[in-house]
Design a protein around this nucleic acid. Structure first.
Lengths: 220, 220
DNA sequence: CTACTGACCGACCGATCGGTCGGCCTGGCG
DNA sequence: CGCCAGGCCGACCGATCGGTCGGTCAGTAG
């Protein structure tokens, strides 16, 4: 019988039953939660340990430093991030429909993985160290390139004006979703903004705006 | 003669000559710099005092707590922010030209006041407290509303398709610039993105994209 | 001169930080 | 059984945190 708060009631089963993952897994999950909410400097190892229901020492048993724990969290997060968001651009259909679907899937994915997204964005905003350079070059640029390629091909097929820059278009689409994610909690304070709590409607509006433009001559 | 590092060489002039503002002004400036670069939790009062060339005690002579200093910095920053960025939408001219000018001015203003911008964005991203609600409602919503009104009027004059949502359009424009600002240091790592170091060219591209859209039927 | 004010300072405080250390406990292996 | 490896722990460390305290000093009014 340990003298700790741990393993009291529902023990005696196998190591990771459910609801009670291994200490390391709980540690990583709680660290992701804490770092994404309060940032690196604003999160203490003791607080993470408390939330994960392990001792602070156990944290340093699994990871040599706080920084290493943070990097492990980032790595896990990014790995999850890279897996998803595929196969949307593969389906066929009208171009505007495809763009709208992509934008909706993107915002949905971001909102469903808000911890991960918050973490990645936070890391990207810091003075670009080797870590964030690696993050962009090796992970995010892949997703970005897929979108750019999709737009470029549509352009080569004559479906899109030749003047538009595919990379600018891709970045504008992504920007809209990221901005929405980052400020969704204060967007409702903006007057005359109707999509504050309707991400998919917002994503649809943005994609239609970018597809058709403001100019009234074409599809009007 | 004090025993400190202060007032050594170029003293004996009037209180705030130049290059050597009052202690309070230096404090606010250095705090803005530190907070914007390393965040609230990542910045110590001692570090700010060191940079401002005053003692840590003097910081608490001017402000009761670290939090009060932070809020004072935010307030100053926001006051500066609210003053600028006017008069761009007042000039007449072709609509696309006006939008392009606005977008260029906006990104230029953001980049010229990067400390302020960083601080405001950081404050907005935190769990919306009363402070950020006030920030949005009383300050930022004004600038936002001006842009929305401008687009709405152009729409009523038939210059813009009736389907587009002015608030979504405004937000998309702003998103693009904010995203560019936030990630400008890692944008160069994206393949095939040519505007990484050319903010005005990026702003022009975005405004043209949003004005003309992707659809090739109109101005092609 | 004295008396007072306010900007400013060094020294110090308790709390908390990231990290270390030595030991407890359990399961597997001989 | 004895033994050991390793997950896990409480106690502790020096450093640093935000903040306090008593005091120095220049300026100024009387």
């Amino acid at each position: 019988m340990a003298t700790q708060t741990l393993n009291e009631s529902a023990a005696a089963t196998d190591s990771p039953p459910e609801g009670m993952a291994s200490a390391r897994e709980r540690l990583l999950a709680c660290a992701a939660d804490a770092f994404s909410q309060r940032g690196y400097a604003g999160t203490s190892v003791a607080a993470i340990a408390l939330e994960a229901e392990i001792s602070k020492s156990t944290v340093f048993h699994h990871f040599p430093t706080k920084r290493a724990l943070y990097l492990a969290v980032i790595e896990t997060a990014v790995a999850d991030f890279a897996q998803t968001l595929d196969s949307v651009l593969d389906e066929s259909g009208p171009l505007d429909r495809q763009l709208g679907d992509y934008q909706c899937q993107h915002i949905a994915h971001i909102l469903e993985n808000e911890q991960v997204t918050q973490l990645v964005l936070r890391e990207l905003q810091k003075n670009a160290s080797k870590d964030s350079a690696h993050l962009v070059r090796d992970v995010l640029s892949g997703n970005f390139q897929r979108l750019v390629d999709f737009i470029s091909q549509a352009q080569q097929h004559g479906l899109i004006r030749s003047e538009v820059d595919p990379s600018v278009t891709a970045l504008t689409l992504i920007s809209a979703n990221v901005f929405y994610f980052q400020h969704r909690k204060v967007l409702r304070y903006l007057p005359n903004f109707s999509c504050a709590d309707q991400p998919k409607r917002y994503a649809q509006s943005v994609s239609q705006l970018i597809f058709h433009g403001l100019n009234g001559e074409s599809s009007q």
